[in-house]
């Protein structure tokens, strides 16, 4: 079993879910996270999040927001973060490449900020309802 953690753009989430459904692995946990990469949280204008309404486009909220704490307490320098979605799923070993490839295919725009995918090992999975363990629990 492997855990796939994908950090992707917010507006690509519906498409990603659709693709996972088509692959037969619809089980996924989704979380709203804030992230920054090699660009240290900077985004250019055309990278603005299409999910946000037009009126937000000039406000501070829109561009990578400093954390609430940073806004409240004036800090000399504020680290910027970009809102992202984090997908976590546990899948059988043989499906990892297939799933990663489809996630990459859907999410790629070619611009910075497309995200990262991490694959890490998982020792055990247990289904709470039936106490099934291992491969049966994640099907």
């Amino acid at each position: 079993m492997k855990e796939i953690t994908a950090i992707i753009r917010r507006d690509k989430l519906p498409e990603t879910k659709k693709v996972l459904e088509e692959l037969g692995y619809p089980s996924v946990s989704i979380q709203s996270v804030d992230g920054r990469g090699r660009q240290k949280g900077m985004v250019c204008d055309n990278d603005l999040d299409p999910e946000l309404p037009e009126k937000f486009c000039t406000s501070v909220k829109l561009t990578p927001t400093p954390s609430t704490y940073a806004l409240e307490h004036t800090l000399p320098k504020v680290a910027l973060f970009v809102p992202k979605r984090m997908l976590t799923m546990v899948v059988p070993d043989d499906l990892v490449t297939k799933i990663v490839k489809s996630i990459v295919k859907v999410n790629r725009t070619g611009k910075t900020g497309d995200g990262k995918i991490f694959v890490s090992p998982v020792d055990e999975a247990i289904r709470v309802r039936t106490s099934e363990t291992g491969g049966e629990a994640i099907v």
């Binding site: 990663v100 990459v104 694959v119």
Partner: peptide, 13 residues
């Protein structure tokens, strides 16, 4: 701290 086997960059694949 936990192990990670592979990392993919979505932009380049």
């Amino acid at each position: 701290i936990s192990p990670v086997e592979t990392t993919y960059t979505v932009r380049t694949g």
